Amino acid sequence: MMGFGNKATRPAISDFERLRLEAAGDSPAQLDKVIKDLAKTHTHQQIAKELGVTRQAVTLRLSTAGQSTKGRKSVLWSVLPWDISEHPQKQYFYNQASFTGLRAFISERQGEAVSARRAVELKRFKELHLAEGEVVHFDVHNGFVYRPREASDRGLVVRWPSDKPLPDPDLLRLILLVDPRSRPQ
């Protein structure tokens, strides 16, 4: 019979526990701080790759530390004016084609790789909606819907609520119809 210490019989360590061990002596609070700091500028996937764990382990660690688990979406919610985190239909709204297209658009603007599925959503978003003069609008009853572009939309791909301040220029470019960085000087 093989002993408990033998790798062949030892229970696999969870990614969550591996994150704790990766800290190599850091307290859980120190580890949480490191991961939270990384989450400000990195996706959960990038953090996971750096630490040698799964993305799910990073998300779990952040959620147990009381940190938003939006990962890459944290930039998304920093640039968008709507907070639907408490809306009873938020999951339905998150899966609407208008929102997934917008999410893919912002991901592309951030320079992130877009999966094949997201590429289809992005193409549909650009060719069927943006090119046809539509913007994404949030309606509390219907979720993310397309509306005809108006002069008040100021070149954005979303209808910005008049009572909300616009994001800073680095974030604003993510939702402009034409990215100022792509214009010839």
Score class of each variant (00 low, 15 high):
G111L: 10
K36F: 08
F16D: 00
S27H: 10
D179I: 08
R173D: 02
L51I: 03
D26R: 13
K73I: 08
N6L: 04
E22D: 09
L177G: 06
E86Q: 10
E17R: 13
E150V: 05
Q110D: 07
L62I: 01
P88S: 01
F105S: 04
T64M: 10
R72L: 11
T64H: 09
R20L: 14
T54E: 08
K164N: 09
A8C: 08
G25H: 02
L128Q: 15
R154I: 06
V178I: 14
L156K: 05
P28C: 04
L60I: 08
V53F: 05
P169I: 03
R118F: 06
T64G: 00
P161C: 12
K7A: 11
R183P: 00
A151S: 12
G66E: 05
E132T: 04
N142E: 12
D37Y: 09
K126F: 00
S63F: 08
R103Y: 12
K33Q: 12
D139T: 06
S63P: 04
R159S: 13
V157W: 05
S74W: 11
P184M: 00
T100K: 14
R149K: 14
R118D: 11
Q91I: 08
F105H: 04
S98P: 03
D179M: 04
L62Q: 09
R61M: 09
S107V: 02
G155L: 14
T100W: 02
D179V: 13
G52I: 02
I35D: 02
L122M: 10
G111P: 00
Y146C: 12
H87K: 02
A113D: 13
Q89G: 07
E121N: 11
L172S: 03
R18E: 04
H87A: 06
D37H: 05
L31K: 01
G101D: 09
L38D: 07
E134G: 10
H87G: 04
S98M: 12
A104I: 01
R173W: 00
A23D: 01
L176C: 15
G143W: 06
N142M: 13
R147Y: 11
A24R: 09
L156R: 15
V145D: 07
S162Y: 10
R61N: 01
D37C: 12
L122Q: 01
E121Q: 13
S14F: 06
Q89I: 00
G111Y: 05
E127V: 06
G66T: 05
L122R: 10
R20Q: 10
L171Y: 12
V158D: 03
D168F: 03
P184S: 02
